[in-house]
Design a protein around this nucleic acid. Structure first.
Lengths: 344, 344
DNA sequence: ATTGCTCAGGGAAACGTTTACATATTTTTA
DNA sequence: TAAAAATATGTAAACGTTTCCCTGAGCAAT
């Protein structure tokens, strides 16, 4: 049976009007349920039947040419097979769906060129707004949005050097601080930090670590800090270096790095928490399922997504009560697992 | 600093034409790089400058009214915080981005009503095609697409009772068969199966299990089969029942059920693989990171996404050599971990 | 001197909606 | 009973593109 290749034409208002023997204006009013128009039940019936008969489906493309909102939001993330972003997106979708909008997700793979490409294409589509976890190579792309007056909300990664924009992310400083403090409270004094060095928000995690150490009067040795790139291989390598030091506990600055690092620990038969304690920043599923379960600092991804979407929708629909810029940093939560040994 | 609420107007072809002191036709030809038009370098320059000056960004909305492709594909999945679908989507995005298209992802939460709602909205947007992992409550929604002549490709969950459509999924029968066969080859004879009962594709997994058992002359006891709903809670409960039986090994029909089931095993301090062996269908990350690592049947999600996207794009662009319907069932791969004990 | 090219560019009609405005028939109200 | 209001519908002008069809000028070959 061969595949049909011809594409059917969509029925138009005109087709419907002809079949129902009326005018397109009447059809349009009926279909939009407008109250500005009196229509006899009989005619309404005829029109509705014609619609069904012809499989008429209104073209949002044509409507939005007439100034109607598109009903589309663009969401840009670095990657979306990253549970952190996936969870944010799930929340965004829940919210915007309630508003009758939908989202178009694209991944920038942390490349400012691709980011620009995507943003331009989305502007071309006249999307109503953007939710962006921006790349860190610059702010030109969001500058462009601001110039054009297109509403946008930034998530997770703050823009540097710019004050006037809406932001929702987690308190990365707090993440680092909480993780470190927890280890200290369990009697650890020699604590390592594995992170990466390209993002300002992770720099914050590192600063939180330093703050906790300092607050407790603990000196930080240089080789307790490892910064690499954000992938499992790098996590693996940083853990190799870390094992040559004298730390008794490690803050794993990201779940991706944690995956690599823990892989190494397993290969070397190093026991968690007996040989080394860890706290992971981030809470992917596997931290609950593995043996041992992991102590993690949980970021409220769902709430980030929800808030970002609400702010954007209100901005678009102009229903915002509060006209100042949002700058929300959501607190993190410590989730106790079995990966931290109590020292005495 | 208060938030600006006024939305800037986009510059139009007309604006550009006026500023460059020419006609919109000329501008359009220049911007589209058409060869059907002779234009002096000087005028071209003027136009390009006006474009920059005005921040002109062509409206894909208006173009597509004139019959141009939208450049949008709709992707529908039951959920996307499910690594199985996430991976498919990542692959789809890679492919369509190469074609200069982009995707709009929505989740149906396995509800045929919401599925219809989304499909209608997407048709309204005049998307060029669909990639759908359909709900199982019926085929009306895809029937509708077929009636309208809109290209679509089905992934993972075959439509029942319909022959003429493009399909890409994995060989679920093979998944069940491979998992079971592996356990048998390791000397297990009393093997349980935990699955769920609402999807035809999972029924296939169960059938593969039966086939392997039968092939090896092994009788299946009724209480070795547990079917529930697709969530961790159900997985947990089914494992409870399973533990009351005499099985030495279990095929976990989905990674979601596996999460619940393994949770219980951990709580009860039942050792894998010493007390019980497991093979999981599906390969989320944690199966490699936990202790022990898990033996899994790997489904080629990335390839599913790639093929589905290629088929759809070729269909849309009419570059298809082969006009018969695709019906691809990708073979699975056994990945050996430490969760199966060798019996003798 | 008339054709017939190649260049260079403008005019205007679609595409499928929305909506302001106009028209015509009833019904109500003063 | 005439004017005003309510009811019921049609016409046509946008919206921002694309593209077909013109108009002219300059030049070479009849």
């Amino acid at each position: 049976m061969e595949k049909k290749t011809k594409r059917n034409k969509y029925a138009t208002l005109n087709d419907v009007a002809k079949l129902a023997d009326t005018s397109i204006a009447t059809v349009s009013y009926i279909l939009n349920g407008s109250t500005k128009r009196y229509v006899t039940a009989e005619l309404r019936e005829r029109v509705l039947e014609a619609v069904k008969e012809l499989n008429y489906m209104k073209s949002a493309v044509a409507s939005s040419l007439k100034g109607k909102d598109r009903g589309i939001l663009a969401v840009l993330v670095p990657q979306f097979d990253n549970p952190f972003f996936t969870k944010i997106i799930v929340a965004i979708e829940e919210v915007v769906h309630r508003y009758g909008y939908f989202i178009s997700i694209s991944t920038t793979v942390d490349d400012i060129g691709k980011e620009k490409e995507i943003i331009d294409k989305m502007i071309g589509q006249r999307v109503d707004g953007f939710i962006i976890s921006p790349t860190i190579q610059g702010t030109e792309n969001t500058d462009h949005l601001r110039r054009l007056g297109i509403p946008y909300v930034i998530t997770e990664r703050p823009l540097s050097g710019i004050a006037q924009y809406d932001f929702v992310g987690c308190d990365n400083w707090g993440c680092g601080y909480t993780a470190t403090k927890h280890l200290i409270e369990n009697g650890h004094k020699k604590i390592g930090f594995i992170g990466w060095n390209t993002l300002t928000n992770v720099g914050e995690r590192e600063n939180g670590y330093y703050a906790a150490m300092e607050e407790c009067g603990l000196q930080v040795k240089k080789d307790w800090i490892e910064l690499g790139s954000l992938d499992t291989v790098s996590g693996y390598q940083m853990m190799q270096h870390m094992l040559k030091t004298d730390v008794s506990a490690i803050v794993l600055g990201s779940h991706i790095l944690a995956e690599g690092g823990i892989q190494l620990l397993r290969e070397e038969n190093i026991s968690i928490p007996n040989d080394i304690s860890t706290v992971i920043i981030g809470t992917p599923n596997w931290t609950r399922l593995s043996v041992p379960t992991f102590t993690c600092v949980h970021q409220l991804e769902h709430k980030i997504g929800t808030m970002a979407a609400e702010i954007l929708m209100k901005n678009i629909l102009n229903t915002e009560e509060d006209l100042s810029w949002h700058h929300e940093k959501l607190a993190c939560e410590l989730i106790i697992g079995e990966s931290v040994k109590k020292m005495n």
